[in-house]
């Protein structure tokens, strides 16, 4: 075990995977200087054939990822801010997500798309979205939302070695968070949620970076005698519904914490699955703690209260337990 900053865990995983397999290539805007620090040093180490700064042309970049992967490479596409996924969405939604089915399974598509997501830092409406609900709805796209340095490393390595398109979304501004990363070749399978805290009164499911405020909420609840179980999804596609269902079977109560806008959020999907498949285990309605259906404003005093925080999470949970 070594303690690492989250962004360092990502950088190390990228380095190790490019070292391990020479058919892994990486391209994107400013990957050389690396705005977030995740791709820093890769161009020097692996050279301009395998690591390329690109023009700003997301519509072509997402198409290129499909074409280069179809032609036999393992592609890592860095799209910087996840709002730029929308700019490149045609080839994501119409090609990447569908080409395997459209061609009768002739090819695998080993593509990993990295992008930073989420608000809370006055980056305003066009640099703070959480596009995973749209990605989840496409079908042929995996979505990883790691929240710890260990998962950041393990999920990224799995995505790169995998044979399906995977969006690997980094929570913006959380790169400095530190945590233990197992030594050696640490791989984390997609579709395995983590139970971050055990408790029998209420299940709190967190998406991505919502894990920390959710854990803080759980500690606050414990002070009031309510024991919450905290489940970190780790990946949204595939989604580990079994772990969530098993927890709800024990607690009878579910709160889903998601920093996507409420309508058709990941939280909405999880709530629907539990309502359909675990209805008889529920002792109270499912609650979602999300962002209202509002674009992220700039002013910090307006932006901050829109995001889920420990107080809102704890209040939602306490309401269910006291009901």
């Amino acid at each position: 075990m070594a303690k690492k900053r989250l962004i360092q865990a990502i950088n190390d995983a990228l380095t190790e995977e490019m070292e391990r397999d020479e058919r892994v290539i990486l391209f994107g805007e400013d990957v050389e200087i690396s705005m977030f620090g995740d791709t820093v040093g890769l161009l020097d180490r692996f050279g301009p054939d395998r690591v390329r700064n690109t023009p700003i042309c997301e519509a072509t970049l997402s198409g290129m990822a499909v074409g280069a992967a179809a032609a036999g490479y393992r592609v890592i596409l860095h799209m910087m801010f996840s709002n730029f996924i929308y700019t490149g969405f045609d080839a994501i939604a119409n090609q990447m997500a569908k080409i395997r089915l459209m061609t009768g399974g002739q090819i695998m598509l080993p593509v990993t798309v990295i992008a930073g997501y989420g608000g809370g830092r006055s980056t305003a409406a066009q640099h703070s979205d959480t596009p995973y609900p749209a990605l989840m709805n496409l079908g042929g796209i995996n979505v990883a939302v790691p929240s710890t340095p260990a998962d950041a490393a393990g999920l990224l390595k799995t995505a790169i070695r995998g044979n399906n398109p995977t969006f690997y979304l980094e929570a913006g501004g959380r790169g400095g968070q530190r945590g233990e990363v197992p030594d050696g070749d640490h791989l984390m399978p997609l579709g395995q949620a983590a139970i971050r805290r055990s408790g029998g009164d209420v299940t709190l499911v967190s998406v991505g970076a919502m894990m920390r405020p959710t854990l803080r909420a759980a500690r606050a609840l414990a002070a009031d005698g309510i024991e919450a179980e905290v489940i970190d999804c780790r990946t949204l596609v595939p989604l580990d519904t079994e772990t969530i269902k098993a927890s709800v079977a024990r607690t009878g109560r579910l709160v889903v914490v998601d920093e996507a806008r409420d309508r058709c959020s990941a939280a909405s999907h999880i709530a629907a699955v539990i309502a359909e498949e675990s209805f008889h285990d529920l002792r109270a309605p499912v609650r979602r703690v999300t962002v209202p259906n509002i674009a992220m404003p700039y002013a910090p005093n307006v932006e901050k209260p829109l995001l889920p925080n420990p107080e809102r999470i704890a209040e939602a949970a306490a309401t269910l337990v006291q009901a």
Partner: peptide, 13 residues
């Protein structure tokens, strides 16, 4: 739709 894909295939080539 084929344009970006071809650029990717050309990069691979």
């Amino acid at each position: 739709g084929g344009v970006g894909i071809t650029v990717g295939a050309a990069l691979a080539a």
